[in-house]
Computed example of a mutant assay.
Amino acid sequence: MTDQPHLLVVDDDARLRSLLQRFLTEAGFRITVAADAAEARAALKAVAFDMLVLDVMMPGETGLELVADLRARRNDVPVLMLTARGAPDERVAGFESGADDYLAKPFDPRELAHRVRTILRRAVPVPNAVPPQKGPIQLGQRWFDPDRSELRGPDGTQRLTGGEAALLGALAAHAGEVLSRETIAEALGTPDAGERAVDVQVTRLRRKIEPDPREPRFLHTIRHKGYVLRPGP
């Protein structure tokens, strides 16, 4: 079916790559595979994938390096990273590089499919997924449109990753209200990622909405409670 999400699976382990291709195909996705970052780059030039499922540790360019470079090039394709190391610091490193979610090996294939679907839902906003807004929300010289998950300003439309758009959408839906890190993680679809992963996403978002991320005007930290978005000119 042409409306099946098209995933690029990148892993240097041929056996795991084959298993991922088979399972994700059975789960209803179209799959292209690549053995390393170089093959992945070639595939990305030829096809607009809906999502990447990307191994962290690969010979040559690592998955972390690849996704960081994609983000630097303003490519916001959703990314789920796979790794044999699931320590909190490893997960945070994945989010810092620009990944949308992180799954440690070994994993249940059903959980993998669930994570993929969750990320894809975030990437394509669902009508009425958040409470209706009265219009775009002003953040200085930029405006966030919750219905389109777009951040617009004098320099045009600012590209947001799926995670950044979900975070800003959740905060915008409750503008002026303090949201705990746990609530935000649920809204992002990553409840087990940990508080530091939420902090990383907030840091990345501030770089795009704040005139000076070191002195936030709009996205404030409320100590021991969480975060609050306070729109304004």
Results as ranks from 00 to 15, higher is better:
V92I: 11
G94M: 03
D36T: 00
V124Q: 12
Q138F: 09
Q4I: 04
H6V: 06
L82P: 06
L64Y: 02
A187W: 04
R181E: 13
L219E: 13
L120M: 12
L8S: 10
Q138E: 14
V9I: 08
Q4F: 13
V56E: 00
G86S: 15
R15Y: 12
I184C: 02
P154M: 10
E26A: 12
D69Y: 07
P136T: 13
R30A: 11
R152H: 12
A197D: 02
E186P: 12
Q141H: 14
I31D: 06
E195N: 15
A72T: 10
V130A: 10
E182F: 07
K134F: 07
V124F: 10
T2D: 15
A27N: 00
L179V: 05
H6E: 14
E90F: 10
D55Q: 06
I119S: 05
F107D: 03
G63I: 10
D69E: 15
P213V: 07
D55G: 08
T25V: 05
S97A: 15
V126M: 10
L70V: 07
P231N: 13
I119Y: 05
H174G: 06
A93Y: 01
I222Q: 12
P109G: 03
Y102T: 11
T161R: 11
A173E: 09
I222W: 01
A37T: 01
N75Y: 04
L64Q: 07
F23T: 11
Q158S: 10
F23W: 14
R159H: 04
P125S: 05
A14E: 15
R71S: 05
E210R: 08
L167D: 07
D100K: 08
R121W: 01
G28F: 02
T221G: 01
L229P: 13
D147L: 14
A99H: 05
V33F: 06
G189Q: 03
A129E: 15
E164F: 02
W143S: 14
E150T: 14
E177F: 02
P191W: 09
D36N: 12
D11V: 02
A175M: 00
P191K: 05
R121I: 10
D101Q: 02
E150W: 14
W143D: 04
F49H: 15
A35N: 02
L205A: 09
A43K: 11
G63L: 03
P125R: 05
D199M: 01
R206A: 06
E61I: 00
R22P: 00
A93L: 05
R223L: 12
T221H: 13
R41N: 07
Q133W: 02
A84W: 06
N128K: 13
A42L: 10
M57G: 01
P213C: 04
A46E: 14
A197G: 04
G163R: 10
D69L: 14
A113W: 07
R206G: 08
V33R: 09
N128V: 12
T190L: 12
L64W: 00
G94S: 05
E177D: 11
E39W: 00
E195H: 15
T183D: 13
R30E: 10
L168M: 07
V67N: 00
G63V: 06
P231G: 07
A35H: 10
P5I: 13
A43L: 04
P59K: 01
